[in-house]
């Protein structure tokens, strides 16, 4: 069967985590321009934690979301400009301003069990005539039946497609398959998938999702993203071509675009031991760099912080608990020393 896949590029959103939210207008214009030429469907531009994410808790943006969005809008001709919004962080006011600046696809991201907090944002995006996407995060924490129930909440609110995010990069391909399949079987809107490469499975998991009927697949240039990064979009494109499927994107252009990302990278986008532990323990990928910083301040091991966060069942957005955990671990360590 000839499959038609739509690529969603998150270099300028999830990649924002990897560069400490330091994107400049010039970088955004260069990268978004190249991406536009390469034929991806959607280019997402937002702080890693979505609209309004610029904060002490998640890291301040060097340049505001709205300015970066406007910069991207100025160079995009073919692709749709997207933004992410996490209810509880961003608000309807933010999404309306993003619309004014040129955003036409709004992805509303909630924890996999909490879709109802995003109903009003989906509806607000639809009122503006935007493409609205229900984005469920940390899907490894829920069974397929639960995911279907939550996806239906978004679908009923008017979402145009449902995106499943393996935010911790924890799933293996069979676990992706059962989660995507239940949606493609029971929903009458398309399904998408967002991977993290913490266990080295991002491309394989994306392929598994496509085979179960997912249409929209997230990826980023050079894999730039939280934790060990996302599905490397140029690799995904090459694999899609090897399968004989179509995405409408051009591999050569994506490779050109990737060159624009190399200079902005602050560290190699690899699976280091800490990002491996994210994937293995099922911890939200963007905790990585915050945990590394806390590890230095409190003189405790990053791995121990991540494992404890996993044990406590922390969800996306709870970056503040990294300090809480690091503080507690350092106290325990101090107590052991004084014994």
């Amino acid at each position: 069967m000839k499959r038609r896949i739509k690529l969603v590029d998150v270099t300028l959103r999830d990649g924002s985590h990897a560069v400490g939210h330091s994107f400049t207008k010039e970088q955004v214009m260069r990268i978004a321009g190249e991406l536009d030429r390469s034929g991806v469907e959607i280019i997402e531009v937002t702080h890693g934690d979505g609209l309004g994410g610029s904060s002490v808790n998640y890291g301040f943006s060097a340049v505001s979301d709205m300015d970066l969005i406007e910069a991207a809008a100025g160079v995009i001709r073919e692709a749709k400009l997207g933004a992410l919004l996490l209810p509880g962080i961003g608000t309807i006011r933010d999404l309306e301003e993003a619309y004014e600046r040129g955003v036409r696809v709004l992805r509303v991201a909630t924890h996999v069990t909490e879709a109802d907090v995003g109903i009003q944002h989906i509806q607000a995006a639809k009122r503006k005539g935007m493409c609205a996407v229900g984005f469920l995060m940390m899907i490894h924490m829920a069974r397929p039946e639960k995911i279907l129930e939550q996806a239906r909440i978004f679908a009923d609110a008017g979402a145009d497609y449902i995106n499943l995010a393996d935010s911790a990069g924890h799933l293996v391909p069979d676990e992706v398959r059962e989660r995507v399949l239940i949606l493609t079987e029971h929903l009458n809107i398309p399904v998408g998938f967002h991977a993290h490469n913490n266990l080295g499975l991002a491309v394989a998991n994306s392929i598994a999702a496509i085979e179960e009927g997912a249409v929209y697949i997230d990826g980023s240039l050079g894999g730039l993203g939280a934790g060990a990064g996302n599905t490397q979009i140029e690799v995904l494109q090459a694999v899609i071509q090897r399968y004989g499927w179509e995405s409408g994107a051009d591999l050569g252009c994506l490779l050109e675009a990737e060159k624009e990302v190399v200079p902005v990278m602050q560290r190699p986008q690899v699976i280091d031991p800490d990002s491996l532990m994210l994937g293995y323990s099922g911890v939200y990928s963007s905790f990585l760099l915050h945990a590394k910083r806390a590890s230095q301040k409190f003189d405790v091991d990053t791995k121990d912080i991540l494992v404890e966060l996993g044990k406590r069942g922390m969800v996306g957005g709870q970056e503040d608990m990294i300090v809480d955990v690091a503080y507690e671990l350092s106290k325990r360590k101090g107590a052991r020393r004084s014994i």
């Binding site: 907090v117 924490m141 922390m314 969800v315 957005g317 709870q318 503040d320």
Partner: peptide, 23 residues
């Protein structure tokens, strides 16, 4: 001022925690 709210579904339910950052 800025405020963020997070809902956590852990079971058993977690106590309410609040982090206050001041510059």
């Amino acid at each position: 001022g800025k405020a963020v709210i997070i809902l956590n579904p852990a079971n058993p339910p977690l106590l309410m925690t609040n982090t206050i950052y001041s510059i």
